Computed example of a mutant assay.
Amino acid sequence: MDLDREPQKMAYAAAEEIRALNHRSLDIKAFYGEYNIINAAPNQVAGMVGGLYTLLERLPQSIQQASAALQHIEEQQAIRMANGDDPGEATSRALRALLDAKQAIQIAQTHLREASGVMSNMGGHFIDDDELEDADTAV
């Protein structure tokens, strides 16, 4: 974990990783696993949902810390608005929006936790070793 990077660079790196996930998972066969068989897909999809749940579990803290930083910066009167708005009023609007975003993420997190719980019991059908050797893995 490289903690020497600037927070905004970390946030954009996380966004880029999600972008890569979105592109990779366009092809359903990406979930077929190491041996390229559909039997691995239920576990692979469940793992992806579990990872997304973990992401949403961590985002509210990031938003809270961004909110605290914004509030501190405004208290130090270190904000200038390019559009002429009052910095205090603009900060209040931004803090409200961040709180709303945090609450929305927590709702989404609840739904992903439910999906992840259900999916944790999913798996592909068992394949005998003989069937695996005969299987057409080039899907």
Rank of each mutant, 00 (worst) to 15 (best):
D2W: 15
A11S: 13
A30I: 02
D129H: 10
V118M: 00
I38E: 10
M48C: 02
L21C: 05
D86G: 03
Q65C: 06
E131Y: 01
N83V: 12
I38S: 10
Q44P: 04
K102H: 06
S92F: 11
R24I: 03
N39S: 12
R19T: 12
R19N: 10
L55P: 07
E131C: 09
P42K: 01
N43E: 14
A101P: 04
G84L: 00
N22G: 14
I63Q: 03
M10E: 15
R113F: 12
R24P: 03
L52I: 03
N39A: 09
A40N: 10
A46T: 11
T110G: 14
E16N: 14
F126P: 11
T137K: 12
L3I: 12
R96S: 13
F31S: 03
A41C: 08
A69L: 00
K9E: 15
A68N: 06
Q106A: 14
A20K: 13
Y32A: 04
A41S: 14
R80N: 10
V118Y: 04
A108Q: 06
L95E: 09
L56S: 04
E34C: 08
D129F: 06
M10V: 08
H111D: 15
A82Q: 05
A94I: 02
L95H: 00
Q106V: 01
G51Y: 04
R80T: 15
L21V: 07
A101N: 12
R58I: 05
M81R: 12
L55D: 06
Q64K: 04
M119Q: 05
E131G: 06
M10D: 15
E89P: 05
G51T: 06
A11P: 02
G47S: 03
A46G: 07
V49S: 01
G88K: 03
D128V: 07
M119D: 05
A104L: 07
D128R: 14
F31Q: 02
S25Y: 14
L55Y: 03
E131L: 07
P42S: 08
D2A: 07
R113S: 14
R113K: 11
D27L: 02
L21K: 12
D136T: 01
A41F: 05
L112E: 01
A11K: 11
Q71Y: 11
N39G: 02
E57K: 04
A101H: 03
L112F: 10
A104F: 15
R93Q: 13
E75A: 11
L56M: 04
M10T: 10
D2Q: 09
L26C: 15
D100N: 14
P60D: 05
Q109M: 13
L52W: 09
N39V: 02
A40E: 00
A69V: 03
T91H: 01
G51M: 02
Q64C: 08
V118S: 07
L3Y: 14
A41H: 10
P87H: 02
A30M: 11
N43G: 13
I18D: 06
L99P: 02
A15P: 06
S67L: 01
I18M: 07
P42Q: 01
N43F: 09
D130I: 00
R5G: 13
E131H: 05
E133Q: 09
H125Y: 08
R5Q: 13
Q61I: 05
S62L: 09
A82Y: 09
E6N: 08
E114K: 14
I79E: 11
N83L: 07
A41W: 02
L70G: 01
